[in-house]
Design a binder for these strands. Structure first.
Lengths: 237, 237
DNA sequence: TAGCACCTATAGCAACGCTATATGAACTGC
DNA sequence: GCAGTTCATATAGCGTTGCTATAGGTGCTA
């Protein structure tokens, strides 16, 4: 990673592409604009990056470094779920601060071709969720939770980017964020972790007790009988 | 030059665009392809639709009719929250069945330019949520809930589209869906969480999440389906 | 000094979205 | 019945796009 070892043209192309992209206001950026700003001619771009998408991949890669750096700044607070919240917010802010770059990174979806960056972001999220799982604060597999949270995070960020700046309301982000985190976190999971039992069993036992204590009329008596039988089968695994 | 038996050029252009888009496998479709398949020449397209985006808007509009029709088929089940679930699933299936059209509709995000279709989809979701609110099943403003749910719905669908077909796992959708719906519908659960007491609702929710995380085979798939349905009734009613 | 690998430039291709202009057909008013 | 208007389509081509065939310059090693 020697800064001076980099041929000037390659770096100037990267900087030119990033700069034009950031100021493009959504309009497409042409290779001629990029090469002109970089002060090189067309074939130089293709020599170094193969094609336009290769150049964009390189820009995205640099953008992802920045994204990850932002995520890691907040990392260890001792409360994994709080870190996940910060991670979510950082994701949204990154998208709103650099919408064009974000759209190239996360918005350029094509069928059955997943950008490498999505897998990287998922891995980052999963890594964080593993800490929560280790602390017994997770009721779902960290990988599934990471995919679910990231999907919602991207969806919210794209929605906010698409809105006029004046109408952007971060409550949308906060609300969705807390809904997702609450869904994967669970007090019962904590108990299960402590007692060493499967969370299914713990939850089934808790529900069984609660159902018998309260006179719930959501199910008919025959439904309830069958329900409790299944609950018992689950609990005695 | 126009034969009387043939549909007018405008309709042939629409059909040609829709057909090429559906089979494009993500590659961009040129106006020349469209006009050639429709059997007309370039200016005809621009006479009827203004520009390429105008034609795409028309295709999207037709696609949205189909989308709405799918949504309305399921409409009144008497349980608004169950309708929302079906609406979510229908959204995902629409996206997976017609990924290219879906990407034009919901994936073509640009900063500060919100596609009209997003507002329409939000309105549709909000309308459904209003019924839930009228039944006292909502703890959030229907508009905010609709925006939040739709954002997550789009995010999940885009993620699934980007994945290879073989790896697509609808659990991602189910899990995120229930998390979002639970978050906006959790009257009792919110109280329970705030008070820290275990209740039927909280236990049911925990069991629900735990069951979906661990692939328990204590119940057959049909049993599990019914079980989860009851669980859902207990959790939300 | 010769050779070689790397980097860059000139010039231009095919495809793209789109349009200036023109022609035939159908309707309208008198 | 016929000029005037409008609609729908076609011919031809403009400017821009991503990209490349080809070749020249530069610096290092033998």
């Amino acid at each position: 990673m020697s800064f001076e070892g980099q041929p000037p043209a390659k770096m100037r192309l990267l900087q030119a592409a990033a700069e034009l992209l950031a100021n493009s206001a959504g309009a497409p950026v042409s290779t001629r604009q990029i090469t002109q700003l970089a002060g090189v001619s067309a074939p130089t771009l293709y020599h170094h990056f193969g094609d336009k998408e290769g150049l964009y991949d390189a820009v995205v890669s640099a953008g992802f470094e920045e994204y990850v750096a932002g995520e890691r700044d907040f990392a260890p607070s001792g409360q994994p779920l709080e870190d996940i919240r910060r991670m979510w917010d950082n994701h949204v802010h990154f998208g709103l601060n650099q919408p064009e770059l974000y759209l190239v990174m996360f918005g350029n979806i094509r069928p059955e071709s997943r950008p490498a960056i999505v897998a990287d972001a998922e891995a980052l999220m999963e890594e964080m969720l593993n800490k929560a799982a280790a602390a017994g604060q997770l009721s779902v597999q960290p990988r599934e939770a990471a995919r679910s949270i990231l999907a919602a995070n991207v969806g919210v960020t794209l929605m906010l980017i698409a809105e006029p700046v004046a109408e952007r309301n971060l409550d949308l982000s906060t609300m969705t964020r807390d809904a997702m985190i609450f869904a994967v976190a669970s007090d019962q999971a904590e108990q299960a972790e402590a007692s060493g039992k499967s969370s299914v069993v713990v939850a089934a036992i808790a529900l069984n007790a609660a159902l018998q204590a309260s006179h719930s009329d959501q199910l008919s008596s025959s439904e309830l009988k069958l329900f409790l039988e299944w609950l018992h089968r689950i609990s005695t695994t």
